[in-house]
């Protein structure tokens, strides 16, 4: 009984957290829209490299410009999902462990991961999801790709699984804050590695490809999910493994979090 109603209760709580946050955020409408524009400028800037550099060359390692736009555009969707939900993780060590807010979290009868993840959102990052979809649609038209209902469904599930992989990786890294006491933690360099997964995996050396697939599985969040849509049958196996990798990553992250919480002792006073 506890399991079923627990899930439903958390789903309801999630809805409440989200609508509450959105209401507060939209109260300052002009400010919210300027945040969306700022976020879009950031997305555009990171896209600029691809557009400027790769529009000059016909193909890179058999990847056409439009295919790379598809890949990069696709990657913006899980990155957007990740940014919307994981905003709080960046401040976890500082706000929760060092300032001591985590005590309050532990006192409530709701899972601590749940509270930390969903206490605040980065709503403006929805812009990244929209930009990604626009880029994918543009590239699909140019490449004359056709999507039936099944493809759209797969696309949606795979993009979401990609978002789960990103969230799981950074949740796991954030959990190390229970052991490593520092405001910033070890996430920043890994965050920079995210860019690796947004370009065709084939441009890298074998050891980089291995690391991106099996050590920090960024390739499963952005590169492999596009393989089927771009008709790269050589990555078929990895494509179907995406939801599995998402589930495994999340389990590892949650286990790490759990043992971190068990180790937690308050900052005191």
């Amino acid at each position: 009984m506890a399991q079923g109603s627990g899930v439903r209760r958390h789903a309801r709580l999630f809805g409440l957290y989200f609508s509450q946050y959105a209401k507060a955020r939209l109260e300052y409408r002009a400010d919210f829209f300027s945040a969306v524009i700022a976020s879009f400028l950031g997305t555009a800037a990171s896209f600029a490299f691809l557009l400027i550099v790769f529009s000059r060359v016909p193909a890179v390692r058999g990847w056409k410009f439009e295919e790379m736009v598809f890949l990069y555009g696709f990657s913006l969707i899980p990155v957007g999902i990740f940014n919307v939900f994981s905003w709080n993780l960046w401040m976890f060590a500082d706000r929760y462990l060092i300032e001591g807010r985590f005590d309050r979290v532990l006192l409530r009868p709701v899972s601590s991961v749940f509270q930390v993840l969903f206490e605040s959102f980065r709503l403006e990052s929805i812009e990244s999801i929209v930009t990604g979809i626009v880029a994918v649609l543009w590239a699909s038209r140019r490449l004359r790709l056709s999507f039936d209902f099944g493809d759209v469904l797969l696309f949606t599930i795979w993009a979401t699984a990609g978002g789960v992989i990103y969230i799981a990786i950074f949740l796991g890294l954030t959990a190390t804050s229970f052991w490593i006491e520092d405001r910033i933690g070890i996430s920043p360099p890994v965050f920079n590695l995210m860019q690796f997964g947004r370009y065709p995996l084939t441009i890298y050396d074998a050891w980089v490809r291995f690391a991106l697939s099996f050590v920090i599985p960024f390739a499963f969040a952005s590169f492999y999910p596009t393989a089927r849509f771009l008709h790269r049958i050589e990555f078929g196996k990895e494509f179907w493994a995406v939801p599995l990798v998402a589930a495994i990553s999340l389990s590892i992250a949650l286990a790490l979090w759990k043992s971190g919480v068990a180790r937690y002792h308050s900052t005191g006073s």
């Binding site: 300052y28 400010d31 919210f32 300027s34 945040a35 700022a38 976020s39 400028l41 950031g42 800037a45 403006e124």
Partner: peptide
Amino acid sequence: TKSILGILRA
């Protein structure tokens, strides 16, 4: 503005 961090990130 109120979205300082957003602006700085952009």
